[in-house]
Structures are given as structure tokens and as C-alpha cells.
């Protein structure tokens, strides 16, 4: 990586750190802006342009708020607690920026597709998007709540928990298992139809995740870190990727578990 790139990353980190140091002001402001943006939709003139415009503005502000909250309570907290060594900070920042741009890119494409500017995706991608849309709000909340409560209310316990067990690997694995079961949990009579596929995939994700909690060792975490993404991929043949997000969370959970070690605890 060139010197200019390092300098740019350093500037971004410093800018975000300054912003995060003022979180007592910035977070409530962003939260209020999010609330206000959603309430604003109800009072704008009821025309197509105004309603869609304010709707997309509300989604944008919500994404900014959640991104700020997640970066602060996960990435910055991990750096402060020493889970991420200083020499790895630039890589983590680059990775986080890429992840943010990918998420914003997907949201932008969806917005442009809905207003008819961008073409719809091929059928398998459309199925994936439609299934993900159903569970996205629930999954977002499930990911945001633990670090928010942990960081603001139980910081020391939260850090000790992540030092003791590969929390994110297990948690995302269990969340992925739940998403593989989601269709038949919401429609119990479907348990009689192809239930082994749903329960088999969910079990294959849940068991290694629970094993990590009961046997938190580096070797076990590395093995589970490879198993979870593999099952996440297989889930596309058994339960359509656990409403799409189940597969993605299994891959991310595996990546978190694999990187967890006694010397660099943060997974």
C-alpha cells in the first residue's frame, strides 16, 4: 500500500475517532435525525416524488446511524480493548470501508431498480433479494443490539465475554441456523414437508456454533471457522441460503471464528 493510501486511511481513522469521541452528542443527534426522517415521510406532500424521495432519505440516514453505531461499538471498541493490534488497524479500516461501500452499493442499486432506472437482476439474484428483504429488519436489530448493550451498559463484562469465547463466530452461526429454520418456524405445518433439509442445515450450523461456546480453543475456532462458511454455501441447495442472509452470516461467522485466537481475541 502506498504512502498516500496510508495517509488517507490515517486521516479517515482520525476523523472517525474524533467523531466517536463526541458520541454523547453525535449518537443522540443521529438517532433523532433518524426518527425525524421517518416521521417526515408522513407530512410531506403525497406525491410519488416526495414520498419516494423522503423514504430513500430516511433509509440513508438510518444506514448512516447504524454504520456509525456498529463501527464505534465493534471496530473502535476492539481497537481500544487491544483485540485488534495496532499494525492491523489499517487493514481493518480498509476492510470496513469496503464492506460499507458494498452495502451502500447494494442499497443504491435496489433504490435505482425500484424507480425503474437500473434493470432488475437475473432470477436467482431476485429470489435472493426478495427472501433477504423479509428478514433484513430483524437481522439488523439482532446484530446491532448485543454490541450496543455491551458497549454502553456492560463494557467490561462485554470485553471479558469476547476474550473468553469467540462470541461473534458463535452468535452469527446461531443466527444463520435460525434463518435456515425461519420458513418452517413461521409455517409450522411445513415441518412435514422436507423438514430434514431445513433442520439438517440448521443443526449443522448450530452444533459447531454451540461447540465453540463450550470449548473455546484456538484450534476448535479455526476448524469451526472453515465449517460454518462451507455449510453456509451448502445451504443454497437445501434451504435457499437461509433466506439469503443465513448463508452470508454463516460465512461472516466462520471468518470471525477463524481469526479468533488467545493472542488476538475479538472474534
Amino acid at each position: 500500500m502506498g504512502r498516500d493510501a496510508y495517509s488517507l486511511i490515517g486521516s479517515i481513522v482520525m476523523w472517525f475517532l474524533e467523531l466517536w469521541n463526541r458520541r454523547r452528542i453525535v449518537l443522540p443527534l443521529l438517532f433523532l435525525a433518524t426518527l425525524a426522517s421517518w416521521m417526515l415521510i408522513g407530512v410531506v406532500p403525497r406525491t410519488y416524488a416526495f414520498v419516494l424521495g423522503s423514504f430513500f432519505a430516511a433509509i440513508t440516514i438510518t444506514v448512516v446511524f447504524l454504520t456509525f453505531l456498529l463501527l464505534g461499538t465493534i471496530v473502535i471498541d476492539s481497537i481500544e480493548a487491544g483485540f485488534i493490534p495496532l499494525e492491523r488497524v489499517p487493514r481493518v479500516v480498509v476492510g470496513s470501508l469496503i464492506a460499507i461501500f458494498v452495502v451502500i452499493g447494494v442499497l443504491l442499486y435496489l433504490a435505482l431498480m425500484l424507480v425503474g432506472v437500473a434493470p432488475p437482476p437475473p432470477l436467482p439474484f431476485l429470489f435472493a433479494i426478495l427472501n433477504a428483504m423479509t428478514v433484513t429488519p430483524m437481522v439488523t436489530l439482532a446484530i446491532v443490539i448485543p454490541p450496543t448493550i455491551g458497549y454502553f451498559l456492560l463494557r467490561e463484562k462485554w470485553r471479558r465475554l469476547r476474550a473468553r469465547v469467540p462470541f461473534w463466530g458463535s452468535y452469527l452461526g446461531l443466527l444463520a441456523a435460525f434463518l435456515c429454520l425461519y420458513p418452517i418456524l413461521t409455517l409450522p405445518q411445513l415441518w412435514l414437508i422436507e423438514w430434514p433439509k431445513f433442520f439438517g442445515t440448521a443443526g449443522a450450523l448450530a452444533l459447531p456454533s454451540l461447540f465453540l461456546l463450550s470449548y473455546p480453543r484456538e484450534g476448535a475456532a479455526k476448524a469451526v471457522g472453515l465449517i460454518l462458511p462451507f455449510i453456509g454455501f451448502i445451504s443454497w441447495f437445501t434451504c435457499f441460503g437461509g433466506m439469503t442472509l443465513g448463508s452470508i452470516l454463516a460465512i461472516l461467522g466462520g471468518a470471525c471464528a477463524h481469526s479468533w485466537s488467545p493472542s488476538q481475541r475479538g472474534g
Partner: peptide
Amino acid sequence: MNWKITVGGLAAVVLLLLAMSV
């Protein structure tokens, strides 16, 4: 987070969906 597993896993899923599309 292990970026190789993340990128490899997500790329495998996208490739699978692309193969299904083709």
C-alpha cells in the same frame, strides 16, 4: 475477521447465483 474466508465465501455464493442465472 479473516478477510480471505469472507471474500472467498461471498464470491463462491455470487458465482453460484451467476452459474444458476447462466
